[in-house]
Amino acid sequence: MTARTPLIVDVDTGIDDSLALLYLLARDDADIVAVLSTAGNVPTAQVANNNLAWLELCGRTDVEVAVGADGPLSAPLRTTEDTHGPQGIGYAILPTPTHRPSDRTATQAWVDLTRERPGEMVGLVTGPLTNLALAIRTDPGLPARLRRLVIMGGAFHHPGNTTPVAEWNISVDPEAAAEVFAAFSAVPVDRAPIVCGLDVTERIVLRPEHLRRLAELSGSTPAETIRSDDAPSTRSVTSNPVVRHLSDAVRFYFEFHRDHGQGFIAHMHDPFAAAVALDPDLAQYRPATVDVETEGRITRGQTVADWFGLWGRPPNARVAWDTDPDAFLDDLVGRVAAFASTMNQSARRDPEV
Rank of each mutant, 00 (worst) to 15 (best):
T2L: 12
A3T: 14
A3E: 14
R4E: 12
D10H: 12
V11R: 10
D12C: 15
D17Q: 11
L21G: 12
L21W: 06
L22D: 06
Y23I: 05
L25T: 01
D29L: 10
V33M: 08
V35C: 14
V35R: 11
L36K: 04
N41L: 10
P43R: 14
P43G: 12
Q46L: 14
Q46A: 13
N50M: 07
A53V: 02
A53G: 04
L55Q: 09
R60S: 10
D62E: 15
V65Y: 06
G68H: 05
D70H: 11
D70M: 05
A75D: 15
A75V: 00
R78S: 13
T80Q: 08
T80L: 13
G85Y: 03
G88S: 10
G88V: 03
I89E: 04
A92S: 12
R104M: 12
W110Q: 04
V111E: 09
R115Y: 01
E116F: 00
P118Q: 09
E120K: 13
E120R: 14
G123S: 12
N131D: 13
A133G: 04
L134F: 01
L134A: 11
D139I: 05
P140F: 10
P140I: 08
L142C: 08
R145H: 03
L146Y: 08
L146N: 03
L146M: 14
R148F: 03
L149G: 02
L149I: 09
G153R: 07
G154Y: 07
P159F: 03
T162C: 11
P164A: 14
E167D: 11
W168P: 00
P174Y: 09
P174G: 10
A177D: 07
V180I: 09
A182W: 02
A183C: 08
A186N: 11
V187R: 06
V195Y: 03
G197A: 12
L198G: 15
L198Q: 11
T201H: 05
V205M: 10
R207H: 06
E209Q: 13
H210P: 02
R213F: 00
R213M: 13
L217N: 04
S233E: 15
V242Y: 05
V243G: 10
R244Y: 01
H245P: 07
L246A: 12
S247H: 02
D248M: 06
F252R: 14
F252T: 04
Y253T: 03
E255G: 09
F256C: 02
R258G: 04
H260V: 05
F264K: 02
I265R: 14
A266P: 00
H267D: 05
M268D: 01
H269K: 12
D270G: 06
P271I: 06
A274W: 06
A275V: 01
A275Y: 05
L282A: 00
A283M: 06
Y285E: 08
R286T: 11
V290H: 09
T294N: 01
R297E: 14
I298W: 13
R300T: 11
D306F: 01
G309S: 11
G309K: 13
W311P: 00
G312T: 09
R313C: 00
V319Y: 06
W321Q: 13
D324V: 02
P325L: 04
P325D: 08
D331R: 13
G334M: 04
R335S: 14
A337V: 07
F339K: 06
A340I: 04
S341C: 12
N344L: 06
S346T: 11
R348K: 15
E352A: 15
V353H: 15
